[in-house]
């Protein structure tokens, strides 16, 4: 299971980094989303990977899974979801205002960069 999770995080991060280095806004947006997935899975595994254990500390329980990373991931998911929504709107507005979806504002055909 460690191998699977680690590969998933690695692949997501690699693809995410590739995507945010692209020139057009849409791949960049997708890249930030992928990066946030990668980091969510990573955070989740930070309390160690355990199966079938309650996420709560009780005196009679010998094995439990760490509840704190789950709470952290929940916060991180909410924040990254909001951020993705914002960056989509922003990319769209920038495209509509400048006529170009290039991250540096370079003109596509018919674009009007000053």
């Amino acid at each position: 299971m460690e191998y699977l999770v680690a590969t998933a995080v690695g692949t997501l991060t690699a693809v995410g980094i590739y995507m945010i280095l692209r020139g057009r806004t849409f791949p960049v947006v997708l890249g930030t989303a992928l990066l946030s997935y990668a980091v969510n899975v990573l955070l989740f595994s930070m309390g160690r990977l355990v199966i079938d254990r309650p996420p709560i500390l009780l005196l009679e329980l010998e094995h439990y899974t760490d509840p704190l990373p789950q709470a952290l991931v929940l916060t991180a998911i909410v924040i990254s979801f909001g951020m993705t929504a914002l960056v989509v709107v922003l990319a769209l507005r920038a495209y509509l205002e400048s006529g170009s979806d290039h991250v540096d504002g370079e003109a596509a055909e018919g674009g009007n960069r000053e």
Partner: peptide, 9 residues
């Protein structure tokens, strides 16, 4: 807007 996009990303 264009500078803002870079800032956000």
């Amino acid at each position: 807007l264009s500078a803002g996009f870079q800032y956000v990303v």
